[in-house]
Protein backbone atom coordinates (compact mmCIF):
# COMPACT_ATOMS: atom_id res chain seq x y z
CA UNK A 1 0.00 0.00 0.00
CA UNK A 2 2.65 2.50 0.99
CA UNK A 3 4.90 3.26 -1.92
CA UNK A 4 8.55 2.59 -2.29
CA UNK A 5 10.45 2.93 -5.52
CA UNK A 6 13.01 0.25 -6.17
CA UNK A 7 16.45 1.60 -6.88
CA UNK A 8 17.43 0.06 -10.17
CA UNK A 9 14.65 0.47 -12.68
CA UNK A 10 16.56 -0.51 -15.78
CA UNK A 11 13.81 -0.49 -18.36
CA UNK A 12 10.82 0.64 -16.39
CA UNK A 13 9.69 -2.92 -15.84
CA UNK A 14 10.78 -3.10 -12.22
CA UNK A 15 8.05 -3.46 -9.72
CA UNK A 16 6.42 -1.16 -7.23
CA UNK A 17 7.30 -2.60 -3.89
CA UNK A 18 4.05 -3.46 -2.18
CA UNK A 19 5.96 -5.58 0.29
CA UNK A 20 3.32 -5.57 3.00
CA UNK A 21 0.78 -7.02 0.60
CA UNK A 22 2.97 -10.03 -0.17
CA UNK A 23 1.96 -12.82 2.12
CA UNK A 24 -0.55 -15.57 2.64
CA UNK A 25 -1.82 -14.91 6.16
CA UNK A 26 -5.57 -15.05 6.88
CA UNK A 27 -5.61 -11.25 6.67
CA UNK A 28 -4.01 -11.24 3.24
CA UNK A 29 -6.66 -13.62 1.98
CA UNK A 30 -9.63 -11.60 3.19
CA UNK A 31 -11.94 -9.95 0.70
CA UNK A 32 -10.67 -6.36 0.27
CA UNK A 33 -14.23 -5.09 0.54
CA UNK A 34 -14.44 -6.36 4.10
CA UNK A 35 -11.18 -4.67 5.01
CA UNK A 36 -12.27 -1.41 3.41
CA UNK A 37 -15.55 -1.56 5.34
CA UNK A 38 -13.66 -1.86 8.61
CA UNK A 39 -10.63 0.37 8.17
CA UNK A 40 -12.43 3.68 7.91
CA UNK A 41 -14.85 3.26 10.86
CA UNK A 42 -12.00 2.02 13.05
CA UNK A 43 -9.79 4.95 12.08
CA UNK A 44 -12.63 7.36 12.84
CA UNK A 45 -13.49 5.81 16.19
CA UNK A 46 -9.89 5.86 17.34
CA UNK A 47 -9.31 9.38 16.09
CA UNK A 48 -12.40 10.67 17.88
CA UNK A 49 -11.91 8.66 21.06
CA UNK A 50 -10.99 10.68 24.15
CA UNK A 51 -10.31 7.89 26.59
CA UNK A 52 -6.89 6.40 27.09
CA UNK A 53 -8.44 3.01 27.82
CA UNK A 54 -10.18 2.80 24.44
CA UNK A 55 -7.02 4.01 22.68
CA UNK A 56 -5.05 1.29 24.46
CA UNK A 57 -7.60 -1.31 23.38
CA UNK A 58 -7.33 -0.14 19.77
CA UNK A 59 -3.55 -0.26 19.98
CA UNK A 60 -3.73 -3.80 21.34
CA UNK A 61 -6.06 -4.79 18.52
CA UNK A 62 -3.65 -3.22 16.01
CA UNK A 63 -0.76 -5.23 17.42
CA UNK A 64 -2.81 -8.44 17.33
CA UNK A 65 -3.79 -7.83 13.69
CA UNK A 66 -0.20 -7.09 12.66
CA UNK A 67 0.78 -10.36 14.33
CA UNK A 68 -2.02 -12.28 12.62
CA UNK A 69 -0.94 -10.80 9.28
CA UNK A 70 2.60 -11.98 10.06
CA UNK A 71 4.03 -8.71 8.79
CA UNK A 72 7.80 -8.41 8.94
CA UNK A 73 8.83 -6.38 11.97
CA UNK A 74 11.33 -4.39 9.92
CA UNK A 75 8.69 -3.30 7.41
CA UNK A 76 6.27 -2.22 10.13
CA UNK A 77 9.05 -0.40 11.97
CA UNK A 78 9.94 1.48 8.79
CA UNK A 79 6.33 2.69 8.53
CA UNK A 80 6.28 3.70 12.20
CA UNK A 81 9.60 5.54 12.14
CA UNK A 82 8.23 8.60 10.39
CA UNK A 83 5.28 8.68 12.75
CA UNK A 84 7.50 8.42 15.81
CA UNK A 85 9.58 11.40 14.70
CA UNK A 86 6.40 13.42 14.61
CA UNK A 87 5.29 12.06 17.98
CA UNK A 88 8.66 12.93 19.51
CA UNK A 89 8.12 16.51 18.41
CA UNK A 90 4.76 16.52 20.18
CA UNK A 91 6.29 15.23 23.43
CA UNK A 92 8.74 18.11 23.35
CA UNK A 93 6.32 20.88 22.47
CA UNK A 94 2.93 19.97 23.94
CA UNK A 95 3.84 19.65 27.68
CA UNK A 96 5.71 22.94 27.53
CA UNK A 97 3.13 24.89 25.58
CA UNK A 98 -0.20 23.73 27.01
CA UNK A 99 -1.52 25.55 30.07
CA UNK A 100 -2.51 23.49 33.15
CA UNK A 101 -1.21 22.17 36.44
CA UNK A 102 2.54 22.11 36.42
CA UNK A 103 4.11 18.77 37.34
CA UNK A 104 7.65 19.99 36.96
CA UNK A 105 9.35 23.33 36.43
CA UNK A 106 12.68 24.10 34.86
CA UNK A 107 13.43 27.77 35.34
CA UNK A 108 10.64 29.67 33.65
CA UNK A 109 9.39 26.62 31.73
CA UNK A 110 6.73 24.43 33.28
CA UNK A 111 5.70 20.97 32.18
CA UNK A 112 1.91 20.72 32.30
CA UNK A 113 -0.08 17.63 33.18
CA UNK A 114 -2.64 18.39 30.47
CA UNK A 115 0.12 18.58 27.88
CA UNK A 116 1.55 15.24 28.93
CA UNK A 117 -1.87 13.61 28.79
CA UNK A 118 -2.56 15.06 25.36
CA UNK A 119 0.81 13.88 24.03
CA UNK A 120 0.20 10.39 25.41
CA UNK A 121 -3.28 10.24 23.91
CA UNK A 122 -2.09 11.36 20.47
CA UNK A 123 0.79 8.87 20.55
CA UNK A 124 -1.50 5.96 21.40
CA UNK A 125 -4.16 6.94 18.90
CA UNK A 126 -1.87 7.59 15.95
CA UNK A 127 0.13 4.41 16.49
CA UNK A 128 -3.09 2.42 16.79
CA UNK A 129 -4.48 3.88 13.57
CA UNK A 130 -1.29 3.24 11.62
CA UNK A 131 -1.14 -0.38 12.83
CA UNK A 132 -4.81 -0.97 12.03
CA UNK A 133 -4.51 0.54 8.57
CA UNK A 134 -1.29 -1.31 7.82
CA UNK A 135 -2.75 -4.64 8.85
CA UNK A 136 -6.11 -4.12 7.15
CA UNK A 137 -5.30 -2.17 3.99
CA UNK A 138 -1.57 -2.79 3.63
CA UNK A 139 -2.24 -6.49 3.25
CA UNK A 140 -4.11 -5.94 -0.02
CA UNK A 141 -2.57 -4.68 -3.24
CA UNK A 142 -3.66 -1.23 -4.30
CA UNK A 143 -5.33 -2.63 -7.32
CA UNK A 144 -7.48 -5.07 -5.37
CA UNK A 145 -8.47 -2.21 -3.07
CA UNK A 146 -9.40 -0.13 -6.09
CA UNK A 147 -11.31 -3.10 -7.37
CA UNK A 148 -12.97 -3.53 -4.00
CA UNK A 149 -13.94 0.15 -3.88
CA UNK A 150 -15.67 -0.23 -7.22
CA UNK A 151 -18.31 -2.36 -5.51
CA UNK A 152 -19.30 0.48 -3.21
CA UNK A 153 -21.22 2.59 -5.71
CA UNK A 154 -18.53 5.23 -5.73
CA UNK A 155 -18.35 7.34 -8.87
CA UNK A 156 -16.30 5.34 -11.35
CA UNK A 157 -14.37 8.42 -12.40
CA UNK A 158 -13.16 9.01 -8.85
CA UNK A 159 -12.14 5.42 -8.62
CA UNK A 160 -10.17 5.52 -11.84
CA UNK A 161 -8.55 8.75 -10.73
CA UNK A 162 -7.38 6.91 -7.63
CA UNK A 163 -6.15 3.92 -9.50
CA UNK A 164 -4.57 5.80 -12.40
CA UNK A 165 -2.68 8.07 -10.01
CA UNK A 166 -1.26 5.00 -8.39
CA UNK A 167 -0.61 3.27 -11.70
CA UNK A 168 1.39 6.17 -13.08
CA UNK A 169 3.10 7.48 -9.97
CA UNK A 170 5.55 4.69 -10.54
CA UNK A 171 6.11 5.55 -14.18
CA UNK A 172 6.65 9.19 -13.22
CA UNK A 173 8.99 8.03 -10.46
CA UNK A 174 11.08 6.21 -13.04
CA UNK A 175 11.14 9.34 -15.19
CA UNK A 176 12.21 11.39 -12.18
CA UNK A 177 15.10 9.10 -11.49
CA UNK A 178 16.18 9.11 -15.11
CA UNK A 179 16.34 12.91 -15.10
CA UNK A 180 18.08 12.99 -11.75
CA UNK A 181 20.67 10.48 -12.92
CA UNK A 182 21.21 12.55 -16.06
CA UNK A 183 22.04 15.46 -13.75
CA UNK A 184 24.29 13.33 -11.57
CA UNK A 185 26.37 11.89 -14.38
CA UNK A 186 27.15 15.47 -15.33
CA UNK A 187 28.57 16.00 -11.87
CA UNK A 188 25.61 17.82 -10.37
CA UNK A 189 25.92 18.14 -6.60
CA UNK A 190 23.08 19.79 -4.74
CA UNK A 191 24.07 22.70 -2.54
CA UNK A 192 22.60 25.90 -1.17
CA UNK A 193 23.00 28.03 -4.23
CA UNK A 194 21.10 29.47 -7.16
CA UNK A 195 22.47 26.85 -9.53
CA UNK A 196 20.95 24.08 -7.40
CA UNK A 197 17.58 25.77 -7.09
CA UNK A 198 17.45 26.48 -10.79
CA UNK A 199 18.40 22.91 -11.68
CA UNK A 200 15.72 21.49 -9.38
CA UNK A 201 13.27 23.94 -10.90
CA UNK A 202 14.07 22.60 -14.36
CA UNK A 203 13.79 19.04 -13.08
CA UNK A 204 10.34 19.59 -11.63
CA UNK A 205 9.19 21.56 -14.64
CA UNK A 206 10.39 18.82 -16.95
CA UNK A 207 8.62 16.22 -14.85
CA UNK A 208 5.34 18.15 -15.02
CA UNK A 209 5.57 18.53 -18.78
CA UNK A 210 6.38 14.88 -19.28
CA UNK A 211 3.54 13.80 -17.00
CA UNK A 212 1.16 16.02 -18.91
CA UNK A 213 2.32 14.62 -22.22
CA UNK A 214 1.99 11.10 -20.90
CA UNK A 215 -1.54 11.70 -19.68
CA UNK A 216 -2.38 12.90 -23.17
CA UNK A 217 -0.92 9.79 -24.75
CA UNK A 218 -2.83 7.54 -22.34
CA UNK A 219 -6.04 9.36 -23.19
CA UNK A 220 -5.29 9.01 -26.90
CA UNK A 221 -4.65 5.30 -26.48
CA UNK A 222 -8.02 5.01 -24.73
CA UNK A 223 -9.76 6.93 -27.52
CA UNK A 224 -8.20 4.58 -30.08
CA UNK A 225 -9.89 1.70 -28.29
CA UNK A 226 -13.29 3.31 -28.54
CA UNK A 227 -13.43 5.01 -25.12
CA UNK A 228 -16.71 6.88 -24.71
CA UNK A 229 -16.33 8.04 -21.13
CA UNK A 230 -17.54 4.81 -19.58
CA UNK A 231 -15.53 2.31 -17.56
CA UNK A 232 -16.38 -1.35 -17.24
CA UNK A 233 -15.20 -3.92 -14.76
CA UNK A 234 -14.81 -7.63 -15.01
CA UNK A 235 -15.55 -8.34 -11.36
CA UNK A 236 -14.37 -11.44 -9.64
CA UNK A 237 -14.69 -11.13 -5.85
CA UNK A 238 -16.56 -13.69 -3.85
CA UNK A 239 -17.38 -13.34 -0.16
CA UNK A 240 -16.46 -16.43 1.80
CA UNK A 241 -17.71 -17.55 5.18
CA UNK A 242 -14.44 -16.46 6.77
CA UNK A 243 -14.90 -12.94 5.35
CA UNK A 244 -18.32 -12.65 6.93
CA UNK A 245 -17.08 -14.07 10.23
CA UNK A 246 -14.22 -11.57 10.31
CA UNK A 247 -16.53 -8.69 9.42
CA UNK A 248 -18.92 -9.73 12.19
CA UNK A 249 -16.31 -10.12 14.91
CA UNK A 250 -14.53 -6.90 14.01
CA UNK A 251 -17.82 -4.98 13.82
CA UNK A 252 -18.88 -6.24 17.23
CA UNK A 253 -15.56 -5.16 18.68
CA UNK A 254 -15.95 -1.78 17.02
CA UNK A 255 -19.40 -1.35 18.53
CA UNK A 256 -18.08 -2.52 21.88
CA UNK A 257 -15.32 0.05 21.81
CA UNK A 258 -17.78 2.72 20.73
CA UNK A 259 -20.10 1.92 23.66
CA UNK A 260 -17.19 1.81 26.06
CA UNK A 261 -16.08 5.25 24.87
CA UNK A 262 -19.65 6.51 25.25
CA UNK A 263 -20.04 5.23 28.85
CA UNK A 264 -16.72 6.74 29.82
CA UNK A 265 -17.67 10.15 28.44
CA UNK A 266 -21.13 10.29 30.05
CA UNK A 267 -19.78 9.16 33.43
CA UNK A 268 -17.24 11.99 33.44
Amino acid sequence: MLLQFPHSPVDGTAVIAEKLSEGSSPLHRLDPRVKLCLALPYAFLVALSESVAVSCAALALGIVLVAVARLKVGLVAARLRVLFLFILLLWITLPLSMPGTAVYTIGRLSVSLGGLQRALSISLKSTAIVLLVISLLGTSTVFSLAHGLSHFRLPKKLLYLFFLSYRYIYVIGVEYRRLRDAMRVRAFKPGTNIHTYRSYGYLIGMLLIRSFERSERIYHAMLCRGFQGRFYLLDHFHMHRRDIAFLLVMSLMLIGMGLWEWFLTISL
Binding site: R167, I218, M222, R225, G226, Q228, R230, Y232, L234
Partner: peptide, 19 residues
Protein backbone atom coordinates in the same frame (compact mmCIF):
# COMPACT_ATOMS: atom_id res chain seq x y z
CA UNK B 1 2.81 2.00 -20.50
CA UNK B 2 0.62 4.45 -22.40
CA UNK B 3 -1.61 1.67 -23.61
CA UNK B 4 -1.95 -0.51 -20.53
CA UNK B 5 -3.79 1.45 -17.89
CA UNK B 6 -6.04 -1.18 -16.31
CA UNK B 7 -5.10 -3.13 -13.19
CA UNK B 8 -5.07 -6.57 -14.74
CA UNK B 9 -4.28 -8.00 -18.13
CA UNK B 10 -7.82 -9.35 -18.56
CA UNK B 11 -9.32 -6.01 -17.67
CA UNK B 12 -7.12 -4.17 -20.16
CA UNK B 13 -7.90 -6.53 -23.01
CA UNK B 14 -11.59 -6.28 -22.11
CA UNK B 15 -11.61 -2.47 -22.31
CA UNK B 16 -11.87 -2.23 -26.11
CA UNK B 17 -14.50 -4.96 -26.63
CA UNK B 18 -16.63 -3.46 -23.82
CA UNK B 19 -16.45 -0.10 -25.57
Amino acid sequence: DDQLFSPTVAEDIAFGPFN
